Computed example of a mutant assay.
Amino acid sequence: MPLSEYEQRVLEQMERELTSDDPRLATSMKTTSQRSSVRYVIAGVGLVVGLLGLVIGAAQSLPVVGVIGFVVMFSAVAYAFAQPSKQSGPVGVVSADGSVTPAAKGQKPRRTGKSGKAPFMQRMEDRWDKRRDEQ
Rank of each mutant, 00 (worst) to 15 (best):
S36K: 15
A43P: 02
R132H: 14
V38G: 06
A58E: 08
A43D: 02
S20E: 11
V55L: 11
L62R: 12
R110I: 07
V67M: 09
L47I: 06
L51D: 00
G106N: 11
R39A: 05
R111L: 04
A76Q: 11
V77I: 12
V48T: 14
F120D: 07
M1V: 07
A59M: 10
V38S: 10
A118W: 01
K117R: 13
A96Y: 13
D97I: 10
Q135H: 14
R16V: 09
L47E: 03
K108Y: 12
M29C: 02
Q122M: 07
V65Y: 07
G98T: 08
L18P: 00
A104E: 09
P2T: 15
G66V: 05
P119V: 09
D129S: 08
M14N: 10
V72A: 07
S115P: 00
L52W: 05
P84L: 08
M14K: 15
S61Q: 11
G57W: 14
K86D: 03
Q8P: 00
Y40H: 07
R131T: 09
D129N: 13
A76F: 02
D126N: 03
R132T: 12
A59P: 00
G57Q: 14
M29I: 09
T19L: 10
A118F: 01
G89F: 06
Q13F: 08
V100D: 02
P102L: 13
P63M: 12
R111W: 11
G92L: 05
P2Q: 13
V64W: 15
P90K: 15
K130A: 09
A82N: 06
V45S: 03
I68D: 01
A82F: 07
L52T: 11
S88E: 04
P23Q: 04
M1K: 05
S85K: 14
R35W: 01
G98L: 04
K105L: 09
T27P: 01
S75I: 07
V45F: 11
L54M: 15
V71S: 04
L62E: 10
V100K: 10
